[in-house]
């Protein structure tokens, strides 16, 4: 398959200045996104998945967050080296982003229409106000908001959470981006709305052919929407594989743990749930060697001294574990 690589992240390292010192929230992360593909970034809280996405958008909180090294190549152009004003043309135009919390992600004092229209005004300055208004209504219709002519005049507080996330998607997709970064877009919504939003994103993707980077901690969502999955642990990639491979033959003990922690319907009732013992290591003082060692049942001597590298299982499946062949 001659799929075109759209976005390539190479050896990304992102650090945060804290009062206690510098911590590396993302270390040596590389993956690529092909046209029309959906990549899932999965991992528990603090594993660096959101920081990775914010680094791509260069939206890290200033002045604490800083990209130390690496490249983010969009059509072979390094976004990290772009001047600020050129980056503004990328954001919202070629790469858009939606966030976890739809309740606070919209400006409370501006009308919905104005907030969608702003994206058009920024990236398609040739459009006049009437066209922008019509297009905004059209966007609301596309994301499945009933009575868009009326909603466009309303303020965010007049909409429900699901509606607001749809508005966020409308804003993000207004300028037909090549890539949509969705940072836990369904986490704050209840399950039925989650399903609707996922369905909506999938159908919009089919219609527009955009790529999606989907960040979540919900493996169920990953299985539903993603083509490829990147599992992150403590700032590093643990495993990277096509979604079927990952669910059928997970190689990393962490991925295996995550998958076995999902309760299954065929399990006998009132059974103790599977967990991964222990907690994520403190990024301030990481252990030497593998970062997963203190929670890993396969830990051996080399795990404590040598950091595992991302090894090739096959042409599409990569894992970062010393003992993946044995387990």
């Amino acid at each position: 398959m001659a799929e075109e690589t759209l976005l390539e992240i190479k050896n990304l390292v992102t650090a945060f200045q804290t009062e206690a010192g510098t911590i590396r929230a993302v270390e040596d992360v590389s993956f690529s996104v092909k046209k029309g593909q959906t990549i899932g970034l999965v991992g528990e809280s603090g594993c660096g998945k959101s920081v990775t996405s914010l680094s791509i958008m260069r939206l890290l909180p200033k002045p604490f967050g800083r990209i130390e090294s690496g490249e983010v190549l969009l059509d072979n152009q390094d976004l990290l080296k772009l001047p600020a004003n050129e980056m503004q043309h990328i954001r919202g135009n070629r790469i858009s982003m939606i966030f976890q919390e739809p309740m606070t992600a919209l400006n409370p004092v501006h009308r919905i229409g104005k907030q969608i229209g702003e994206a058009f005004m920024l990236h398609q300055p040739e459009m006049d106000e009437r066209t922008i208004y019509k297009e905004s209504i059209e966007m609301l219709r596309q994301v499945g908001i009933p009575a868009p002519e009326q909603r466009v005049q309303e303020y965010p507080h007049q909409l429900s959470g699901g509606m607001r996330q749809r508005v966020m998607i409308a804003i993000a997709l207004a300028c037909k981006p090549d890539i949509l970064i969705a940072d836990e877009p369904t986490t704050a919504l209840d399950v039925t709305i989650q399903a609707q939003i996922l369905e909506l994103m999938k159908s919009l993707q089919t219609a527009s052919g955009m790529a999606i980077i989907f960040i979540t901690h919900d493996l169920g969502v990953i299985a539903e929407v993603c083509d490829e999955v990147v599992v992150m642990y403590a700032g590093k990639i643990a495993e990277k594989a096509p979604v079927c491979d990952l669910f059928q033959s997970p190689k990393h003990p962490y991925t295996q743990g995550l998958l076995s922690a999902i309760p299954k319907l065929e399990n006998p009732p009132k059974q103790k749930l599977q967990t991964i013992e222990g907690t994520v290591p403190d990024l301030m003082n990481l252990p030497a060697g593998c970062r997963f060692q203190n929670r890993c049942s396969y830990m051996e001597a080399p795990c404590q001294s040598q950091s595992p590298l991302l090894e090739k299982v096959n042409s599409t499946h990569f894992v970062s574990c010393h003992r993946w062949k044995e387990i």
Binding site: L59, H89, G92, S96, T104, A105, L106
Partner: peptide, 22 residues
């Protein structure tokens, strides 16, 4: 520091416009 400012910047606004417009 609020979310909607991040949204505004993610939309393509400069920091300055995000401050004054939002």
């Amino acid at each position: 520091a609020s979310d909607y400012i991040r949204t505004a910047i993610a939309k393509g606004l400069s920091f300055r416009s995000a401050v004054f417009k939002h």
